[in-house]
């Protein structure tokens, strides 16, 4: 079964499955223990190393299982974890399991341009105003018309000493907002990179200006970024290309890492994101097989009632026109051949002396004949006329 087409072959919106986009991705930690080595952590010894890779590895038999930051002894106590996802994903949730008492202040950021710029997704703090200058999140989600970065309670310490940071995109969005119909929400959930800034350890009291009285380190595992590979409704899976980059396996005449544009010949109407109800597939230009390229013309698209705006370029086989649907000057349509036939257009072959021009009737192939001349190509004298010696008046009335 093809998720992107129905049983009859008609295109339909399709999306990749929900995955942990962070799984196996390299995590960049601003601080990791073991350099220089200590009794508990040695970056050069796999049995005693706590690298950031443990945050996104599949787990299994790895021992140890938690990433540890270096000992933090002075402010600022920020430690940043950055996960490049490789391409755009549409986020559903982000979670991080702490292996020790969770921090009381965490910022969650996203990038949509592979780490060049960052925007907040949410904050987690017991002191939202003090730490981030924000009000605590309302219980029923954001008050505004769109999603926004809210400040949620800090991750709660569990009886085992750890804790879980859990962020759901849904919690930041007003109820009733639909991904298919809301470009704002589509933008909100899109991320190429995720960054978690651990800002304040739990043991340091309640003010951000509290100096570190005792050495502290952050410790965490199982960083999950739940989301779908962003393909704009035009692919059901993502693959690695020949350079090892993650890309959508685009359908519906689309291309690009996110299926974000129409393929070169598929520009009969503008690109659109697919929805659950409408595939909005890119349509191939109608060129009767005589052109390999086309361009989109918005004016023609509007005039056609938003049905077709493609204009064929470089029509071959002596064809011409927006759809290569008629013959270029000096050629006429062969009625015995289909419009898509390579030999659908025949040369007029107007007689160099008998015809008054080189352009024949597009439909019948009749050349314009001089007085007294007849025939499709004007190559004979009409009845009652005979050939003269003058190329200007090749046929004259028979005496």
């Amino acid at each position: 079964a093809d998720p992107c087409h129905d049983e009859g072959g008609a295109p339909r919106g399709c999306v990749p499955g929900l995955v942990n986009a962070a799984l196996g991705r390299e995590v960049l930690a601003s601080s990791t223990c073991g350099r220089p080595p200590t009794r508990a952590c040695d970056a050069s010894d796999p049995r005693r190393a706590h690298p950031a890779a443990l945050l996104t590895s599949a787990g299994g038999t790895a021992n140890p299982v938690c990433w540890h930051s270096d000992w933090l002894t002075q402010v600022p106590l920020n430690v940043t974890l950055t996960v490049p996802l490789g391409k755009a994903f549409e986020l559903v949730f982000v979670s991080l399991r702490f292996c020790s008492t969770p921090p009381t202040s965490v910022a969650l950021l996203k990038s949509q341009d592979h780490g060049r710029s960052w925007a907040p997704l949410g904050f987690f703090s017991s002191h939202c105003g003090l730490d981030y200058g924000r009000q605590p999140a309302p219980a029923d989600g954001p008050a505004g018309p769109g999603p926004e970065a809210l400040c949620f309670p800090e991750p709660q310490a569990q009886p085992d000493g750890g804790g879980l940071l859990a962020f759901s995109v849904q919690d930041s969005s007003p109820p009733g907002l639909d991904l298919d119909s809301s470009p704002v929400l589509q933008d909100w959930v899109t991320a190429t990179d995720i960054r978690i800034v651990l800002t304040r350890p739990a043991m340091l009291g309640d003010t951000r200006d509290t100096p570190a009285m005792v050495p502290y380190s952050y410790s965490a595992t199982e960083l999950q970024v739940g989301g779908r590979c962003k393909c704009n409704g035009h692919s059901s899976r993502c693959l690695l290309d020949t350079q090892g980059h993650l890309i959508c396996d685009c359908r519906h005449g689309t291309e690009g890492p996110d299926c974000g544009r129409c393929k070169p010949f598929y520009c009969d109407r503008p690109w659109q994101r697919a929805t659950a109800r409408e595939a909005h597939a890119c349509l191939a230009c109608s060129c009767n097989g005589h052109a390999r390229r086309c361009r989109f013309n918005m004016e023609l698209y509007r005039l056609s009632g938003r049905r077709s705006g493609g204009v064929c370029l470089n029509c071959r086989h002596n064809t011409a026109g927006r759809h290569c649907h008629y013959c270029r000057e000096g050629f006429y349509r062969d009625p015995g051949r289909a419009p898509s036939d390579r030999r659908a257009c025949r040369a007029c072959d107007c007689h160099p002396v008998g015809a008054a021009g080189k352009t024949c009737n597009q439909t019948t192939g009749q050349c314009p004949c001089k007085d007294g001349v007849t025939g499709l190509t004007c190559n004979r004298c009409a009845p009652g006329f005979q050939q003269s010696r003058s190329p200007v008046a090749p046929c004259v009335k028979t005496p």
Binding site: H351, V353, R380, Q387, S390, P394
Partner: peptide, 23 residues
Amino acid sequence: EVMPTLDMALFDWTDYEDLKPDV
């Protein structure tokens, strides 16, 4: 009545050299 095709050899191009086709 089917008339014969125009015979190019019969034309006199003396005064119309510039119109003479390349045939």
